[in-house]
Simulated assay, not measured.
Amino acid sequence: MANSGFQLLGYFLALGGWIGIISTTALPQWKQSSYAGDAIITAVGLYEGLWMSCASQSTGQVQCKVYDSLLSLEVHIQTTRALMVVAMLLGFVGIIISVVGMKCTKVGDNNPITKSRIAVSGGVLFLLAGLCTLIAVSWYATQVTHDFFNPNTPVNARYEFGSALFVGWASASLTMLGGSFLCCSCPNDERRGQQYYRQSQPSATTREITKMPAKNKEETS
């Protein structure tokens, strides 16, 4: 029962992380305008994400523009896009597989060892999804940091970390934590040994039947 609760905890943690991965991919605030140092504070704040760039005015009006061309984007943006999409797909497959493999479901209940292995497979997929997200977000943050401290970058064109990066780091942590919990739900060797011992022992009725002919032979002699 405790193992089943452990699986549920890992599943819901990974599910929440997967939802966060989707939100991170869709958010346009991957980097935002920096007002540090001698930067001039303007009435317009600029945000950039994986799919669009936005301008937020002091009146509260936000205007966004989707990137016109995929091939004209920088390499780190294209690679980050690919990693985030792969992470979403891995998480989706992991959700389906984990539901089949968890003990609280009735699918494949006649073979608990195979069922636990399926749950572990779902946990591995969640770990890979979290790892892809962590690599993508960290790489993007590294590029933002490099451009910020690059002396050739104009002061008014520098960007800082956006809120989407922090959501991405949190989502990757939750997904990997939930996947680790699911990977720890594999049955131990002791239970396997007990199950094999019970299956290998003949029943009492079988032993009595095998002993009856020898007993009758002794009585007739």
Rank of each mutant, 00 (worst) to 15 (best):
S116C: 15
L70N: 12
E74T: 08
V107K: 01
A39N: 08
C104P: 07
G49C: 13
L83S: 10
Q57E: 14
S98C: 06
Y67R: 00
V66C: 00
C54R: 03
S116G: 15
V75I: 10
L83I: 02
D109N: 14
G94Q: 09
L71G: 10
I97S: 05
T114S: 15
L89Y: 09
G101T: 00
T59V: 11
V93L: 13
T80H: 03
A87R: 01
K103Q: 13
V85I: 09
R81A: 04
V86R: 04
K115I: 15
I97C: 05
L50Q: 05
E48N: 10
Q78V: 06
V107Y: 06
M88L: 05
D68W: 01
D68A: 06
N110I: 14
Q78P: 02
V86T: 10
G45I: 08
K65S: 05
Q63T: 10
T80Y: 03
N111Q: 07
Y67C: 03
R117K: 15
T59C: 14
A55Y: 05
L89N: 07
K115P: 14
Y67E: 01
Y47I: 00
M84P: 00
N111H: 11
R117I: 11
T105S: 02
I95D: 02
L83N: 12
S72I: 00
M84T: 04
I95M: 03
Q32T: 15
W51E: 10
Q78F: 00
M52F: 11
S56L: 11
E48S: 15
G101F: 01
L89S: 08
I113L: 15
K106N: 14
A43M: 11
T42W: 03
C104T: 11
I77F: 14
G37W: 00
T80E: 07
K106S: 13
G94V: 07
K65I: 08
Q61G: 06
L50G: 13
G108W: 05
T42A: 11
N111R: 13
V75S: 13
S69K: 08
Q63H: 04
V86A: 15
L46P: 13
S34Q: 01
L50E: 06
R117H: 12
T80L: 02
G37T: 01
A39Y: 05
C54E: 02
I77H: 13
A82Y: 09
Q61S: 04
L46M: 09
T59E: 12
T79G: 07
V99F: 01
F92I: 07
S98V: 13
F92K: 00
E48Y: 12
Q63E: 04
T42H: 05
I95C: 03
M52I: 04
Y35N: 04
C54M: 05
M102W: 06
Y35L: 05
V62W: 06
G49L: 11
S53D: 11
C64V: 07
S53E: 14
Y35M: 05
K103P: 12
W51T: 09
S116D: 15
G94Y: 08
H76A: 00
V85Y: 13
Q32H: 14
I77Q: 09
Y47G: 13
V93R: 06
R81Y: 10
V100H: 01
K106H: 14
H76I: 00
K115Q: 15
A39R: 08
